[in-house]
């Protein structure tokens, strides 16, 4: 037993076992206490919803995925540029950082109605909300990565007569990579939350919209199905970021 807990397969076996146990308990509780479907649908009911609605769910999942990824991509570019800027320039840091913090404290869900007025409902507000939620994390982490480069490391290059650009290439940039990748797994989750929030408020497409629409017709099994798909998508996106991180910044121990 001890040996199994330390083994690699335990990392997969244990959570899967827990999920199965949870699903079985869930099914039993719903059947035993005769809980109505519109309060809490049993896993079997959710499975039934899947066979009835799989086409619609898949179609809307693609919408959510593409909104999330587009928002994330814009956040990545903006976050990198902003991070390099405030990480390298003291003036930019002093000027912009308080503004960024102030902006970051605004609950982004409050912005969605405004975005919908400016850009109409649908893809644009979803992508923008995803972006707005995610870029700050990336920018702050990249800036931190640049600001924490040891002075001696820079001295090694300066003493060789390296230019500012070379110092950035050889030291600043690689040094900020672990910080960047650590922020990506958080930022992707934030982008995901952003696009779903926006879809629930200002869209007629996407899983967020589908949940709202299913709830309004009391199709609770469908709403639950959407939630489960969201959970799986979120985990996969997070997992991809972690895998990329481990491959790219292998030197961090």
């Amino acid at each position: 037993m001890e040996k199994f807990l330390k083994s690699k397969s335990a990392n997969y076996v244990l959570p899967i076992a827990a999920t199965v146990v949870l699903l079985v308990l869930w099914e039993l509780v719903v059947r035993l206490f005769k809980i109505p479907e519109f309060v809490l649908p049993a896993p079997s009911a959710i499975l039934a919803a899947w066979s009835a609605w799989s086409g619609v769910v898949i179609q809307n999942s693609w919408v959510t995925l593409s909104n999330t990824l587009m928002g994330f991509a814009i956040a990545l570019v903006t976050g990198l540029l902003l991070g390099f800027l405030i990480g390298y320039s003291k003036v930019a840091y002093t000027t912009l950082y308080p503004l960024l913090v102030g902006f970051n404290t605004i609950p982004k869900v409050a912005l969605v109605p405004l975005l919908a007025i400016w850009f109409g409902i649908g893809t644009i507000p979803a992508v923008l909300t995803a972006f707005l939620l995610a870029f700050f994390t990336i920018a702050v982490n990249v800036a931190l990565g640049l600001a924490t480069v040891e002075l001696e490391m820079q001295d090694v290059l300066k003493a060789l007569g390296a230019t500012k650009v070379e110092i950035f290439q050889k030291v600043g940039f690689p040094h900020s990579l672990p910080y960047l990748f650590a922020s990506l797994k958080i930022a992707i989750s934030q982008a995901f939350i952003g696009s779903v929030i926006s879809e629930t408020v200002a869209s007629n497409k996407g899983l967020g919209y589908l949940i709202v629409s299913a709830s309004s017709t009391f199709d609770i099994p469908l709403a639950f199905l959407c939630l489960i798909v969201l959970a799986i998508m979120g985990m996969v996106l997070y997992g991809i970021c972690v895998a990329v991180e481990q491959r790219t910044v292998h030197w961090v121990r």
Partner: peptide, 14 residues
């Protein structure tokens, strides 16, 4: 034509 080494070896970890 100058090379320098510090007390801390400051190798680049990547």
């Amino acid at each position: 034509s100058v090379g320098i080494a510090f007390q801390n070896p400051v190798l680049l970890p990547w």
